[in-house]
């Protein structure tokens, strides 16, 4: 398995030791979860329960007043400016 590629997709830096360790652990875990292959699921089930999973809608109204939570939320933001979250360039 391409641990390197996965780490990139998951946006996690990994040391080379950890990559090696994960490679071994994943082999064991994947072997374990592959037990599902034996399960007989060929009766046309699409995998999602029809009775319990349904969309819950509400009217798009009663918005809170603008800025009500801004200060509280920005308190946890590493970088902000003029009431905005500050981010580095996405495209260079």
């Amino acid at each position: 398995m391409e641990i390197e590629k996965l780490a990139k997709l998951a946006r996690i830096n990994l040391s080379s030791e950890e990559k090696e360790k994960l490679q071994k652990e994943f082999e064991a875990i994947l072997k374990y979860i592959s037990a599902l292959k034996e399960a007989d699921t060929d009766d046309g089930e699409n995998g999602f329960s029809k009775t319990e999973t349904l969309n819950v809608m509400r009217p798009d109204e009663n918005a809170h007043e603008t800025g009500k939570f801004t200060e509280d939320l920005l308190e946890g933001v590493p970088f902000s400016e003029n009431g905005y979250v500050k981010v580095k360039h996405v495209f260079e």
Binding site: I33, L36, K37, A39, D40, T41, E45, G47, F48, S49
Partner: peptide, 15 residues
């Protein structure tokens, strides 16, 4: 398909 989709179906079997 081999893992996630299959697991969803198995979840249904268990239910």
């Amino acid at each position: 398909d081999a893992y996630y989709a299959k697991a969803q179906k198995v979840r249904e079997l268990i239910k």
